[in-house]
Design a protein around this nucleic acid. Structure first.
Lengths: 210, 210
DNA sequence: GCCTCGGTATGATCCGGATCACATGACCAA
DNA sequence: TTGGTCATGTGATCCGGATCATACCGAGGC
């Protein structure tokens, strides 16, 4: 719950590139919030008073049903959360911390006002939202594929530049993103490699043929 | 490729609710484009000259790799397509028609200008994008679940009002949205019904307990 | 030093959803 | 009327990914 002053925006943007669209006046009023695993940050029904951007750790938007079932509506391990909360009177989900971590809070009214008055920020924000839609829709198409190899190749084709992809996270994390167990990922990657379809050199993966 | 004048916006908004955010001046310059299955609408590398909104049929954004593989980056059976194309110089995908259908074209420069000059439209557009992000992320969480029952219940919990959901499309379409075969959906729905977890009355599905 | 924890990696087994097959009914057109 | 198409269902089989188990390694803590 501590704030460091002044915030080191250079390193913040490095750890969370989505934040580079934020204009100076918002940067100066942003506050760091540290959270602990299991903590409830906001509850359903409360008015959203801040835009949130996860810097480290995992935040979940959770909806609890009357029957007591708990479903995860959104999970974030980095980047803005609940962008739609800007337009709504109250949260429609609980906001929970799944791990220890840190997030950035921007006062909602200032965020809204910045969007209204700053045309540059506005178009960057629209572009960021549109790009997020694009990325998540691609992720969606990928998850609709059955078969580990298809998902891996879809990821490579969609994300690789010139047929070469450099993994930035661990393979376990990649497996989770692909909706696979890490075992299935290791095995399928090994098979694709044996069959000459891809080459694997550490974190760099290349497609040879599809 | 025919245009009807004047466009009947009342019925258009009824068939595609996302369009209700469009202001009058854009409505008056929108044109209907009819497309045929297999048709290539735009090619990678071309500058995007219009915002597209699918009214009927299926449009796909397809990326072809050097190896000849073809992956679907986005599929749309209704609603805006390639919102991120507004911010980019050229299309990064081919735009193909998967079926016969109709879409609405808005000249890109007019769309951009309307966003710039019309504060009301602008906030509606931002809200729509943010809501799209929310919906697609929820869809994502759902597809990350293994097991047909879990996906069905997640959908019910997330989309149902008061534990009751009225299906607007066919069950086959629902199955596809859930990333399941229709057989798996029918069977699991029947099992959940037998076990008293849900009740099914035609298009209305209710959760009893989870 | 030792010990734990997390990522990497592979083997064996099991199960659930994909697949194939088939029947029915609605609807539309020739 | 007939034939075709499509959504709705259900049954039988198969396969691939989940699951459980095990091992190795490197980093960090004590």
């Amino acid at each position: 719950m501590t704030d460091e002053f002044p915030l080191d925006w250079e390193s913040i943007v490095r750890e969370q590139p989505a934040l580079d669209v934020i204009p100076g006046r918002l940067r100066s009023i942003a506050r760091v919030l540290r959270f602990a695993a299991g903590q409830t940050l906001y509850r359903r029904g409360e008015p959203p008073r801040a835009m949130l951007c996860v810097l480290a750790g995992e935040i979940r938007l959770v909806r609890r049903s009357a029957g007591g079932a708990e479903i995860i509506v959104q999970r974030s391990r980095g980047g803005f959360v609940a962008e739609a909360s800007m337009g709504s009177k109250v949260y429609h989900c609980d906001v929970l911390a799944a791990t220890d971590g840190r997030l950035l809070r921007f006062p909602m009214h200032a965020f809204r006002q910045a969007l209204d008055s700053d045309a540059g920020f506005r178009s960057l924000w629209i572009a960021r939202l549109a790009d997020e839609v694009r990325k998540v829709r691609a992720q969606n198409e990928r998850l609709n594929l059955h078969g580990a190899a298809e998902r891996i190749l879809h990821y490579l084709e969609a994300e690789a530049a010139d047929g070469a992809l450099t993994l930035t996270h661990s393979r376990k994390a990649w497996a989770a993103e692909l909706g696979l167990t890490h075992e299935a990922l290791y095995r399928t990657l090994a098979r694709l490699s044996r069959e000459g379809i891809v080459t694997v050199e550490g974190a760099v993966i290349r497609i040879r043929r599809a």
